[in-house]
Design a protein around this nucleic acid. Structure first.
Length: 267
DNA sequence: AAGGGGTGCAACCGCCCCTGT
DNA sequence: TACAGGGGCGGTTGCACCCCT
């Protein structure tokens, strides 16, 4: 017994015509988004509901930007991808007007190639260096791309809060996964490209100050009234149960401040 | 001019999660 | 609690276009 296809074979497929775009745009403008199966039916589009949704969200929705990804946006994509892996929807949320599909395509066609090139070309600068080093394709070594070393579980539900050593404040937070074999620490991917002038690229480890700083931020946000008296499992549960707390969002906020600083942006 | 290979990107596919019943 | 359907998401495909020979 195979899976039932979501669309009949008689549905239109392939590129959308201008008429179809107009029909869909008009319908959504009047009735709003959602209920995509009904959109397809009621608007008279011989298209799968999913196809309508994708067309609207990726191309027709007002405010969508097309092409010309700026250097700043590229830097942001690189940093976010390092943080999140292939979670394009989350990355897209941080880039106004950009869609997950566009970012995914941009990564696959441009950035992944740069990654490969840089892994071949980049060599660590001498320790005493005080300026950025230009490489081919005009990237400084500050822009070195680093792929996640461990795949992130496709969807995270919560984070484990590990308090390994209370005396040493050696705490860490890692994602909880449905599949223990896939468990990975999000902070494993936090690679800090030094903003200082010493041009050192640092791998953030469980013992790193930045990591502890991020973990502390997570801890404080999840439980402002000091969680130090709670057990690890209680703290994990608190993170999980808090409606307002989104671990990835929080890590993103921390990371975005660093990116803004890195790019010299004030806001 | 032709055709073969490479590239970019729109769109499809299928898995997973959430929600309603 | 179990199930079904819809929606969200990431991976993959297929095609149009471009460039090179």
């Amino acid at each position: 017994m195979g899976r039932r296809p979501c669309c009949s074979k008689e549905m239109n497929k392939g590129a959308w015509s201008r008429d179809e775009d107009q029909t869909l745009s008009k319908y959504v403008a009047i009735h709003g988004e959602g209920k995509w199966q009904k959109v397809a039916q009621n608007a008279g589009l011989n298209r799968c509901g999913k196809s309508c949704r994708q067309r609207w969200l990726n191309y027709l929705k007002p405010g969508i930007k097309r092409g010309d990804i700026s250097q700043d946006e590229e830097d942001m994509i690189i940093r976010l991808h390092r943080l999140l892996g292939n979670r394009w929807a989350l990355i897209a949320k941080r880039l106004p007007g950009r869609t997950d599909n566009e970012i995914k395509n941009y990564w696959n066609t441009n950035l992944s190639k740069k990654l490969q090139q840089q892994q071949q070309q980049w060599q660590p600068p001498p320790p005493s260096s005080s300026s950025s080093h230009k490489h081919k394709n005009n990237l400084t070594h500050k822009h070195v791309l680093v792929a996640p070393q461990t795949p992130i579980p496709r969807r995270l539900k919560a984070f484990h809060y590990n308090n390994n050593d209370n005396n040493n404040n050696n705490t860490s937070i890692s994602p909880c996964s449905d599949d223990n074999n896939e468990e990975a620490s999000l902070t494993d991917f936090l690679i800090d490209i030094d903003d200082n002038d010493d041009d050192q690229m640092l791998l953030v480890t469980d013992n790193d100050d930045d990591h502890r700083h991020n973990s502390k931020l997570l801890e404080e946000q999840s439980n402002p009234s000091s969680s130090s008296l709670l057990s690890s499992s209680d703290q994990c549960n608190n993170l999980f149960m808090s409606e307002k707390f989104d671990p990835l969002e929080t890590l993103l906020d921390v990371e975005l401040k660093r990116v803004a600083s890195f790019l010299g942006l004030k806001n």
